[in-house]
């Protein structure tokens, strides 16, 4: 079992305060994590913000960073244990295969890890902003692990919490496939899934600006799907 397979929780910080105060008081001695035996000390542990909104108790998760590279996240404290990022992205459930709509908080955490943590190169700027907690997303599962995702806004969804403006068309907001899984048509699969989810819609939006990688996938898609050529728009 992996964190995403455990019973759903309301918050991601179960036991974290206890873990933190044990570290602060020195109650635990010489705790180490993973094959590189990174010491779990108060100095190596920090709160990693996962969502831009929601109650403070479930906006962040306790994380372990590398003592050599403070930007590198090694593990997360979930449901009373430390888990490596690769294990957090894994599943033991055979039903998690292909594209699955995100429902649980743990699945939302996976979207966050894929978009902001595991694919980030040292010194690289963040490609995506933090997602709101209620964002519509789908995860792509392959070989027992989450390997990609896309997020979208349905037509009529609120643009923000205050102006009352709504999306005039469904918009694909962000899309990502893990580097190790690229070049196998998975990006195309994500894009086609978005288009078929909203096949009744006349126009479909892709959020601006488009990355080079996404343009390459779009070129491939539109090269063979004439029906989509008049329907896909870059939107601001």
């Amino acid at each position: 079992m992996f964190p995403v397979d455990l019973p759903d929780v309301e918050e991601l910080t179960s036991g974290s305060e206890r873990c933190l105060s044990a570290l602060e008081s020195g109650a635990v001695e010489d705790q180490r994590f993973g094959c590189s035996q990174v010491p779990v000390t108060r100095g190596n542990v920090f709160w990693l913000q996962v969502f831009e909104d929601g109650p403070p108790s479930s906006r962040s998760v306790l994380a372990l960073r590398s003592p050599d590279d403070p930007d590198q996240v090694l593990a997360l404290f979930l449901q009373d244990s430390w888990w490596s990022l690769e294990d957090v992205l894994r599943t033991a459930s055979p039903s998690r295969t292909g594209l699955v709509p995100v429902a649980s908080l743990a699945e939302r955490l996976l979207v966050f890890l894929l978009s902001r943590v595991v694919e980030r190169l040292p010194g690289e700027q963040q490609l995506f902003l933090l997602h709101p907690r209620a964002e519509s997303c789908k995860l792509l599962w392959e070989g027992g692990a989450a390997v990609g995702f896309y997020t979208f806004k349905a037509r009529g969804a609120r643009v923000d919490g205050w102006s009352g403006r709504c999306y005039a068309l469904p918009v694909l907001d962000s899309l990502q496939v893990r580097r190790s899984c690229r070049g196998r048509g998975l990006g195309l699969r994500l894009l086609e899934d978005f288009c078929s989810t909203f096949q009744e819609e006349e126009l479909l939006g892709i959020s601006s600006p488009l990355s080079e990688g996404l343009v390459a996938v779009l070129r491939k898609l539109l090269g063979r799907r004439r029906d989509l050529r008049d329907r896909l728009y870059e939107v601001e």
Partner: peptide
């Protein structure tokens, strides 16, 4: 604001 993606690709804008 919106612009057609296929047209943009054809015109080399992307």
């Amino acid at each position: 604001a919106r612009r057609n993606i296929w047209l943009g690709i054809q015109l080399g804008r992307f």
